[in-house]
Design a protein around this nucleic acid. Structure first.
Ligand SMILES: [Mn+2]
Ligand SMILES: [Mn+2]
Ligand SMILES: [Zn+2]
Ligand SMILES: [Zn+2]
Lengths: 136, 136
DNA sequence: CCGTTAATATGTAATTATTACAATATAATA
DNA sequence: TATTATATTGTAATAATTACATATTAACGG
C-alpha cells in the first residue's frame, strides 16, 4: 500500500558531476560555488543546469536547501536531521551532529502541525576569531 | 568604564511611522510589507527609506533580521531571544516563546565562539492545513 | 544496434530583492 | 534663525534566482 513513487531521472554527465561534487560534501556550498567547482571538470556546464539539478535533487530529497546565509541559498547533501553553526563574519557553515530536546507543547504550537526543525548557532569561526584579535 | 555609546538618531516622521508600525508587531513583516503598511498613513515615504531605517534599527539592536523565509528577509521588533515556527506553505511566521536546552559541548563547537542561536520549526499553519484537507 | 521521444541542457532574458548613489530636504543644535 | 550633519528620495545598479525557447540526449523498445 506504500506508494513508492520511485521517480526516475535521466543520468547525465552534468548531473553526475554535480552529484559527485556533492557526495559527502560538508561545506554547504552555494549554487555558484557548485557551479564553479563542477565547471573545472566539466567546463561546458551551464549555471541554469546547476539550479535545475538542485531543484530536482530537492524534490527527490537528495539535497536540503538551507536559508541560513542571508545572501544566498546553501545546499547540503546530508539530508539527515542535523544542525548548523555559521560564522557571522565569513559565513562558513559547519555541522553540529547532536540531538536537542525540542518538544513544543500543543499550546505553544498555535495550531501548526510541526513537521521539521532546525537549530542555527551563530558565532565566529577560528580563523575569524584570530583575524579580529590581530586587528588593532 | 562601560562605553555606553548611545548613538542618537534623528527622529523623522518616516522613522516614527516605521517604528509605530513595528512596535509590538508579531507578524514578522518583510521590507515590502512594512513599506506598504506605512505608505497607507504616510504615502510619500520611499522604499529606500524603509531599507535604510531597517538597517539603522538593526545597528541599534532595535530590530532583528530573520533569514527564515527563503524569498525575502523578515524583520522582528522583538529582539529578546525567542524562536519561530514557519508555515511551509504560506510562510506565516509565529513566535515560540520557550527556552530550549541548547548547550553545545566544546568538542562539537569546532573552535567556534558561539554567541547566538535560533530554533526554526517548520509546519503547516491552521489555515493551510484546512486548505489541503478540502483540496481533492 | 538504431530510432523515437520525453526529459534535460543551454543561453539568454526576465524577475525580484536589495544596495548604491547623487541630489535635495530637514531635525537637531547652538 | 542659521548651520550642518544626517536623513530622504528617486533612480540606477547589483546580484540571486527563475522563466522560457531552442537544441541536445539518455533511455527505452523494437
Ligand atoms: Mn549540514
Ligand atoms: Mn519573533
Ligand atoms: Zn569566519
Ligand atoms: Zn500557512
Amino acid at each position: 500500500m506504500t506508494e513508492d513513487k520511485v521517480k526516475k531521472i535521466k543520468m547525465t554527465p552534468q548531473r553526475a558531476a554535480i552529484l559527485k561534487y556533492l557526495d559527502g560534501n560538508t561545506s554547504h556550498p552555494s549554487a555558484e560555488t557548485i557551479f564553479e567547482a563542477v565547471r573545472k571538470k566539466y567546463p561546458m556546464i551551464s549555471f541554469t543546469t546547476v539550479y535545475n539539478t538542485l531543484q530536482t535533487l530537492k524534490d527527490l530529497d537528495r539535497v536540503r536547501e538551507l536559508n541560513i546565509d542571508d545572501e544566498r541559498k546553501r545546499y547540503d547533501p546530508n539530508v539527515n536531521i542535523h544542525h548548523h553553526l555559521i560564522c557571522t563574519n565569513c559565513r562558513k557553515i559547519v555541522d553540529i551532529r547532536m540531538d536537542f530536546p525540542l518538544n513544543v507543547p500543543d499550546e505553544k504550537a498555535q495550531g501548526y502541525m510541526i513537521s521539521g526543525r532546525h537549530v542555527e548557532f551563530y558565532g565566529l569561526c577560528p580563523k575569524c576569531r584570530n583575524k579580529k584579535k590581530n586587528n588593532y
